[in-house]
Design a protein around this nucleic acid. Structure first.
Lengths: 398, 398
DNA sequence: TTGAAAGCGCTAACAT
DNA sequence: ATGTTAGCGCTTTCAA
């Protein structure tokens, strides 16, 4: 049967199919205007069966006549046919979608990670990203997982600072592949959750050693209230460096306020408040490692407000390596985390889970090798400086 | 028929249904482990038909016997049943999903907007957000739209700086509701795209007047290469303020480099480069309005690098009102844009499109009323300062 | 007040 | 090498 001979009848069929089918669309359909062709339309148009079209769509063209393939492809092109991902998903249970849970998109660090994840997922795997902010709320996280499941999304990357991750395990049991950022696996328990994390211990150690190398004796680690695995690893790294240099006696942990539900720009507010409190202390630390760059930036702002100069009066090192660190005044020295590498690893683990990832009880750890030196670290003020350091409301830039 | 009497047989049916159905799931299914109950399971379990369950699910319980309703609800609870959103979507064409297109998630301004959009869409409408970065690439935008269509997502918020928005119109024709941020409607043409935008003209005017009020005579507007509607509106606002004060002769537009595909942190790099170039000019402007806060921050960093002080040597005003502006040193004076209000408006227009929005040929414009004064603006240096201003590599904070 | 049944668009056995 | 067909889980007429 030549396609030439049946061209006209086929066209009629297609048209009738339109008028019969479209009106049955319900309510304010997504496709109320503009027709969306289906695999059936393509089949009619090409004079083949739907399975042949489906085969073309899915690359099963091995034992297909060239001519058939060509006809189908031509029909697809002419009708501008795009397969309906929803129908496909209903059938296969597979969605080219990746869930991404972050505490807050407004936090530049999460924004940076999210960008890498989204780009990589898209370019390497053709996956789109379904994103959600949780504001560090367990309830919201659970709801997000529920929704993902309902939408047939079976892979998710979670950036959560919640200490408890049992709700992760629950969804893993329901068929989800969960990749968790910035936390080691819970000790002892084997988890089906894959963990990807920077080496927080090492990052903090590096930052602390940098301060020590500049002669600082009175060290502090500035963090927010609430302990997470990553924060505690950083604290350990800080303490390890202090101890190794006999400075453990004067090394203190500064606990700022709790992150509220807004959970992002608030981080710097906590830093600022901490700095204000700190400036009143007579024997305050001369070198501070901040739990992250945002905290460091807040610290610097607060110190400045209190009339203290960075780095002359106090030195600051951040952790993250945000591009903002290069913009601050003075430039913030910070431990650069390998954001792009980690993002890639997370996407890979989420989309092509390897047995070794599941099997390894430890997290996949990325060592931060780079301490970016800028201007926020200098030698500590001479001992006598303790008296002259505070200059009331004098502006730092004066 | 009492549910007590048939309890056992029903249970059997359910179990058999499992063993028959589950094995047919294909490949590495999303639900390979952990059972996901269907409406059918609920119906069996409650001893009713699927349509009754569906009615409960959709709140059509008006003429339903209380007892039936209770049985169904109980079954739903016991089986922890969650309706499959994919199947529902295939049937109804409606997805509780919102597309969100941004140039780059790593840009804090877009992060801030994205957060508001996501939160509002979720809390008010139960919509999840499918996000995509486009890096200001038209091809990528078009692909994103295609994918949204394929996924049955029919509403999208677009934050694009692309001058040409004809590809928006195309998808509108295919049934999409598109809301566009930060651009007026194209002149003359009626568009089915809804526009929401800050009053960019007013924002720049406000910033410029602020500089003028401080006595600045040599004004500049710093922007990146490539004209967009929002940038040109800002330039007009800048020029209007300059003209009104007889300063048009000395008011210049500073065009920085082109934003490359990375398109975000690069903004501040452009600012920095611009500042370096500027510092070499003998008759350089004393007051600069930056196209946005990131540019302003970059400008400040570059000026500092060149040994110029802000605000003593040159004053800077930003536009956006990022929380980062409060953190910079000196604090950046900036025009605060009503991010949350605009985000709400965009979500509303996308999810509950009102005729008036579609009808209005103009954009829904949000007036920025707030200029946040910080420390980046001061009186211009005395005329003689022109000579003494440049001090080589002297650090700003010295 | 409830149930039966027809599909939404697609995939993949299973025929032929 | 290609076609037929049974569903994926749900909504919604229409019938009872």
């Amino acid at each position: 049967m030549s396609s030439m001979l049946v061209a006209t009848p086929i066209l009629l069929v297609v048209l009738r199919s339109f008028s019969l089918r479209r009106p049955t669309r319900l309510g304010p359909s997504a496709f109320a205007e503009g027709f969306v062709n289906t695999i059936k339309d393509v089949a009619h148009h090409a004079g083949v069966s739907v399975s042949t079209v489906s085969n073309v769509l899915n690359g099963r063209t091995g034992r297909m006549r060239k001519e058939t393939l060509a006809r189908v492809e031509k029909a697809i092109g002419q009708l501008k046919f795009r397969p309906n991902a929803v129908a496909r998903r209903l059938k296969t249970g597979q969605a080219p979608l990746l869930g991404l849970l972050v505490p807050s998109l407004a936090n530049p660090m999460y924004g940076a990670i999210a960008r890498e994840i989204e780009t990589f997922a898209q370019e390497q795997y053709g996956h789109r990203v379904l994103i959600g902010s949780t504001y560090r709320d367990k309830e919201k996280e659970a709801t997000f997982f529920e929704d993902l499941l309902a939408h047939g999304v079976s892979r998710v990357i979670v950036i959560s600072s919640l200490a408890d991750e049992r709700h992760f395990e629950t969804v893993v049991g329901r068929g989800m592949t969960v990749v968790s950022y910035d936390r080691g696996a819970a000790k002892g328990r084997t988890s089906k959750v894959v963990h990807v994390t920077p080496d927080n211990f090492e990052a903090a150690r590096l930052a602390t050693e940098h301060l020590i190398a500049h002669g600082h004796k009175r060290l502090a680690f500035a963090t927010v209230a609430g302990m997470t695995m990553s924060r505690s690893a950083k604290i350990q790294g800080f303490q390890a460096a202090a101890s190794r240099n006999g400075l453990q006696k004067t090394a203190v942990i500064l606990n700022g306020g709790l992150l509220d539900e807004y959970g992002d720009s608030i981080m710097s507010e906590v830093g600022r408040a901490l700095a204000l409190r700190l400036s009143a202390e007579p024997a305050r630390p001369t070198g501070i490692v901040a739990v992250n760059d945002l905290m460091a930036l807040g610290l610097m702002a607060g110190l400045r407000e209190a009339g203290l100069r960075v780095p002359q009066d106090v030195s600051i090192v951040g952790i993250d390596g945000l591009f903002l660190a290069a913009l601050s005044n003075p430039g913030l020295s910070t431990v650069q985390l390998p954001v792009a590498d980690m993002a890639r690893a997370m996407v890979e683990c989420a989309i092509e889970p390897k047995l070794e990832d599941q099997a390894r009880s430890r997290a996949r750890v990325f060592v931060p090798t780079l301490l970016v030196e800028r201007e926020s670290v200098a030698r500590p003020p001479a001992p006598a400086a303790k008296k002259t350091t505070r200059v009331g409301a004098r502006k730092a830039r004066a």
